[in-house]
Design a protein around this nucleic acid. Sequence first.
DNA 1: CTGAAAGCGCTAACAC
DNA 2: GTGTTAGCGCTTTCAG
Lengths: 341, 341
Amino acid sequence: MASLKDVALLSGVSASTVSRVLNSPEIVEPNTIKKVQQAMKKLNYRPNLMASGLRSKSSRQIALIVPDAVHYTSASVIQHTSSLLQELGYTLILGNHHNHFETETELLSGYFRRNIDGIILYLIYDEGQAVQSLLEQEDRQVPVVVVGRRIHTAALSNVSVDNYKAGFLAGDYLGSLGHRRIATITGPRITQWARDRLDGFQEGLSLHRASLIWSYSQDELPDFDTGILAANEFFAASLWKERPTAVWAQNDIMAAGFLKQCTVRGFRVPEDISILGMDNIELATMVTPALSTIHQPFREIAQAAINIIMENRDVQPLEHPQYVSVEPSLVVRESTGIPGM
Amino acid sequence: MASLKDVALLSGVSASTVSRVLNSPEIVEPNTIKKVQQAMKKLNYRPNLMASGLRSKSSRQIALIVPDAVHYTSASVIQHTSSLLQELGYTLILGNHHNHFETETELLSGYFRRNIDGIILYLIYDEGQAVQSLLEQEDRQVPVVVVGRRIHTAALSNVSVDNYKAGFLAGDYLGSLGHRRIATITGPRITQWARDRLDGFQEGLSLHRASLIWSYSQDELPDFDTGILAANEFFAASLWKERPTAVWAQNDIMAAGFLKQCTVRGFRVPEDISILGMDNIELATMVTPALSTIHQPFREIAQAAINIIMENRDVQPLEHPQYVSVEPSLVVRESTGIPGM
DNA sequence: CTGAAAGCGCTAACAC
DNA sequence: GTGTTAGCGCTTTCAG
């Protein structure tokens, strides 16, 4: 493998000049550049990133930490982060910790040892632990962005969807279809995002004098089974004369669970009940009927996180944390309709 | 940040001894070890991986390259690879190239510049390009494992599921349920895996004198829409008197598409037609009815790939390529039953 | 078993 | 603009 030195020798310039051609060609004479580049080509020279990283204390690597790569929204976050970083010439390091605190701490400390240039923390389950372990790294010199959850505690930058707005869109949409008796399945009540979505939802409904007459939530993971459990309770409870005609599940996976139980029990969607999801994951298009949903723009989220890191790259001490909200939007498919169709 | 030198100074030993405590403590006197470790603790010393990587030419990083992180089986491959590597103290680098040849080449060349210790190539779409670009790296010093597709052309190690066996399990199972008129939706016929699955399927069916009377394939990606298209053709064609009573889709995503169309058209599954998938992705449990399927053991695949890399880590020149097959298995859920239920 | 010396491949500081 | 000199933080001979 040819080294910078070899290039220097072959082109008859000093090593630092070769380095300059690589990193700041604008201060090198065009002729010199040409000579050096020819030598590089001839030797098939590829700069060694470990060496430059060691010297410059920048690895040109960014770490993305997710709780679980198979979690239903992770793939999208991973994909966009990866693609966007590649365009910038950065390499993505991926870690997952299964919500296991020690693993997470180990990951983080490993990354610091690699002169990592930035860390994106995708929070799904929980709002505290990850952040806590990060803050324990007393002398952090690296920009960190928390993504997916709005966090308030820490001096960390943060990107997330506008949850209130998402709820509002959902409520306004169902109301505008004519639904007046509404149900919802929320995320864990202890979380800020679930409350924000709920508040927005209520506000959206209120525009149409629609009312939330049934809601389900549990304190665990809002997943497929949660949707099934919610449906079971819903149907058990629905000896009521005036059953809700629409339900908003605060994520698609719960919506899918709920939908499954509706189908199993012979309830037609959307004729007997409209189901609206949130996130707009691929699954939403694959169930029958395809889920109407509130789109969570993961690409924009990833982009915003990366922007924050790039802007703070050379800022020492770390800049003030930035807070970015991205806009959700409504996607209408087959699972929603006017009541009593 | 404390460096090795600081530790050496504080503990009164040489830098090389500190290094030995880190890398081969068995050749250091226990007392010295203790002293050094105390100094490390005191200084909160973390070895810099860029420096050791530069010197030792091993970054303790392994790259996983996938065509698309959002492709339906990628998440599983990513998750397992990531977890297994972390347990070994390795860091995962993730790249995706959207089946774009230049991107792929760039990724690869970037990884080589990082003194990467191994590369896992997850092939989905195509069997040629990735491999080709890799072989162009004339003086490769790094173990590479191709995963997901059986490749024959190149001198690269390879791990994949036993596709013939998968087909056989599918055929044997449907036959054993009593189905005699069988349909299938294959992957692109040009691919080896699709043919292997089909051959095994035929063999499995033949045990029961069941026959394949309808099959669908296209030359593009075997995805959700393929399943839908297949269903449309199926129903268009099925003016036949003796319609197939079971269909094997060579992956779950096509099975889900087929299932959706069955539902839309009022065909009951499994009463009117049994549907069997392959892969056992999460989606299989989320559609209604849940898909019976052939499980593709992605964890074992990831494990085998990592094993190969670890074994060949220090072997120079590269060992003979290894070929590993992993065993598929049958998972019965709700979408299959006896014919004419 | 331990230390001294050299250097992995690159960049940064300072000259000129 | 370019060259010279150090040295990033670690590992690896080679002595002893």
